[in-house]
Design a protein around this nucleic acid. Sequence first.
DNA 1: TTGATTTACGTAAGCACTTACGTAAATCAA
DNA 2: TTGATTTACGTAAGTGCTTACGTAAATCAA
Lengths: 315, 315
Amino acid sequence: MDYLAELGTLALGSRLRRLSDLFYEEVADIYAFYNFDLEPRYFGLVSYLHHHGPAGVTEAAKALHLTHPAVSVMAKALEESGWIVFEPDANDERRKLLRLSSKGQALVAELAPVWEQIRQGVDELLGDQAQQFFSTLGRIESALEDVKFSKRALRRASLASHNRCQVITWQPKYGDAFHDLNEEWVRRFFSYEEKDGALLRNPERYIREPGGEIFFALLDGVPVGTCALQKTGDSEFELIKMAVARRTQGQGIGTMLLDAALAWAEAQGAKKVTLETNGQLVGALKLYQRRGFVRAQRPGPTSYERADIYMERRL
Amino acid sequence: MDYLAELGTLALGSRLRRLSDLFYEEVADIYAFYNFDLEPRYFGLVSYLHHHGPAGVTEAAKALHLTHPAVSVMAKALEESGWIVFEPDANDERRKLLRLSSKGQALVAELAPVWEQIRQGVDELLGDQAQQFFSTLGRIESALEDVKFSKRALRRASLASHNRCQVITWQPKYGDAFHDLNEEWVRRFFSYEEKDGALLRNPERYIREPGGEIFFALLDGVPVGTCALQKTGDSEFELIKMAVARRTQGQGIGTMLLDAALAWAEAQGAKKVTLETNGQLVGALKLYQRRGFVRAQRPGPTSYERADIYMERRL
DNA sequence: TTGATTTACGTAAGCACTTACGTAAATCAA
DNA sequence: TTGATTTACGTAAGTGCTTACGTAAATCAA
């Protein structure tokens, strides 16, 4: 059986691609049968120049939904075969007009019955579903182009702005999440040490009792990120244990956590927040810089082997 | 407007190709949104291994309608990412079984909801036409694969064997065809000389009256090929002016003409048929060799500048 | 007018497939 | 069994597009 067809929707991309290849091959066979040395992929450009008249490279590329380099290369090949000629645009020296040569026009005339044959063949193939098939095709095309646009917008707006995500302070029921999110994070980049475990499993004792706080980001009520502030001085905190679940990274959740932590520190009257991180974590570094942290000389020895960058921000 | 859509049927290949690209891009966006570093094109293989269990390279390639090198390279990439593992086949040392690693299986589990999301998205896109669209897709697929097969067969069988083509001897009404077919041919490979014109325009006088004959191949009644035998000795003819219309070349028409000419010569009691040709005309050369002509020393000076090969066949 | 930006086009490199070819194991034919 | 053919797989080269980048002309902004 055809596994791709079985997969249905999910393999749509592959199926369409394969269908496209089969179709091109079919047309190539027909051309070869009649001894045309025209490749099927040139059809679009030749036909466009025939119907539209002379056109620039970019213009043709836009009409055919190709990039201009593709058309540029194609035009060179067609020019070498003598089917089109280049001529300068009188009004714009940058442009190079592509025009069917007389030989090219003769080719189009000769091809006309072959194209008609192809058209009939496909119509026969599609039968009475032809019209609906093409209308569905058109709908998918326009929809996909729209959706692509909206998807980028969605990504930019991110989950955070849709009120699906909120940051809260410590709640005992999220204790496991605090541990698990950090463990996932540590394991991904470094190796988990038991030393980490002690603090992660007793955050109330090591962080909150000395005057710090722990934060959670909840996405639809599910904890997907966490961080903590550890009191390191009279009016100073260290940001530690920042972790966001892999699947929800890049959606502004880290930023929300950091903002909440900074706001809390400020409310406590803090004058400075410090942190240690690793230069390989580019995303994190950018986040800290965006929120005003600057690299500085570490006042004392680090408590983490993996940290090679020390930053601070004055409030 | 969308010129490709306007072209409809003829640009179907390009449209399907573009649609496929758009779809892949869409899926890639979704994967990226959830921070999967899986490329959409890997979907088929991963999914196949998931549903089918361990499989060899060729086996997977067949199921996914790809070539085995494609799967081979893909597998290497997936193995490097740790999603699949290679293991030898106990029964066949040539085979290399691809199997989802535990990390790969975890990936599939994580991807399941995303795939479901994609499925829903596409179904929504297609609306109530979904079912019909997929059934049409399937029909095109199977039809194209069948047609391709039959087309090759058709090409091999060629027009000649379908009784659409017959060879006749001279008829005055085809006098123009004799000239035109040869002129087309000469102009394509060499340059037309007025010297050619004299014979081509008065074939009765120059060929038939001295004891030769002129042959035409008719395709559905239309002359698409010609050749002539010129009497060059007591029981000797020279084959001249062999020409087949460009669009119908490669379909055995030349062979039919040659066979008819040889049969005619034999009926006249000829002992030898000679010809002159040019080494660049590979197709013609092969045809002559296939019918028993061999290269030989030219007895006298050639009458054609463009001829560089002399052949003869004894009857 | 001048300097900055945009636009038209070409070249180069990358990518994901293909075809072509080579090797080694399995299978078939005698 | 032996020799020829088929099959499984890998590597290399080719292909037709893409993205990235560079150049020169056109356009815009001051």
